[in-house]
């Protein structure tokens, strides 16, 4: 039985889509470009240093852990870089670089690799890094500098504590974290991701919608202020939508998004911390396994079988 043909066998399907994991990661990074430009425009070269520091540290940490574990190094898939960049964009512009390094290491090691690496983490790694820094170095993490051309009334307070014109918030001329100030830039990136289908519209819509409704009802500053202030826009579009840590079912995504919005408002209005986006997403990340389990969609043909 000679076989000169050298065929391959595999089970069906024999064709696959062209989409790859790393492509998704790089597309999201591409969507972050406007935000990164905005951060450079408003905060100058400091923004670049922070972005570079976080990106490089995150990638180095990834390599280090994978080498240590004897696993193939998957630095090219872009996921570590993405985590690093997102983390950097949530940090205050004047944060000491060593803190950024520390945050990136925490994000990659504690946020991702203790669970087994990409795809297994329960919590958003970038948020883990940010939360760790926030709780460790409260002072440094809440010192906001005014951006170039900004309204110079906010040099110490976070935007959520001060007065700010909504238009300034929208464009980004207020103090705040690197990437969180300019809602305009964030929306640009978000629209691109929505258009490309890399994020589910349900999460940002549900999240922002809930915040808008609740702040209209209880907030003192009104919905438009809450929507554009702080890290909400960035969180709703780039962090809550993280595939690994959000639900896979559609119903689940609604619950997740509304839960995020609800907790954000609770923390903003009643809590000790000025900003609730960070913790609300982490808290909802925690619920994702349960949400997934209890929001199984009705399968084809299930109605009739039960009826």
């Amino acid at each position: 039985m000679d076989n000169t043909l050298d065929l391959t066998v595999s089970s069906a399907p024999h064709v696959k889509s062209e989409e790859t994991t790393s492509n998704i990661m790089y597309q999201v990074i591409l969507a972050l470009v406007p935000v990164m430009f905005a951060s450079f425009y408003f905060f100058g070269p400091g923004a670049i240093y922070l972005l570079l520091t976080c990106g490089i540290t995150a990638m180095l940490s990834e390599v280090a852990v994978q080498k240590l574990r004897g696993k193939p190094v998957t630095i090219n898939d872009g996921s570590a870089l993405l985590t690093g960049l997102i983390l950097a964009l949530t940090l205050p512009p004047d944060l000491p670089l060593w803190m950024a390094v520390f945050g990136s290491v925490v994000a990659i090691v504690l946020g991702k690799h203790i669970f087994g690496g990409l795809g297994y983490n329960v919590f958003n790694p970038a948020l883990m890094g940010r939360a760790f820094l926030t709780l460790s170095y409260v002072v440094s993490m809440t010192e906001w500098t005014a951006p170039n051309g900004g309204v110079d009334t906010l040099s110490t307070a976070t935007p959520l504590e001060g007065e700010a014109e909504v238009i300034n918030l929208f464009i980004g001329r207020v103090g705040g974290s690197l990437g969180e100030t300019s809602a305009l830039a964030i929306l640009l990136g978000g629209l691109y991701l929505l258009y490309k289908g890399y994020i589910d519209w349900r999460i940002p819509v549900g999240y922002l919608g809930t915040v808008a409704v609740l702040t209209t009802l209880v907030g003192e500053q009104g919905a438009s202020f809450h929507l554009f202030a702080g890290g909400l826009m960035f969180g709703a579009i780039f962090m809550a939508t993280d595939m690994v840590t959000s639900p896979v079912t559609k119903k689940g995504r609604w619950i997740f998004a509304i839960g995020c919005g609800f907790i954000t408002v609770i923390i903003r209005v009643f809590g000790n911390y000025p900003e609730g986006v960070l913790f609300s997403i982490l808290l909802m990340n925690m619920c994702v396994p349960l949400i997934d389990q209890y929001t199984l969609p009705q399968i084809y043909g299930e109605v009739k079988a039960n009826g």
């Binding site: 913790f279 982490l282 808290l283 925690m286």
Partner: peptide, 11 residues
Amino acid sequence: IMALAFTGLAM
């Protein structure tokens, strides 16, 4: 990490 997230709910 859960405790970390719960810290955010402090009032």
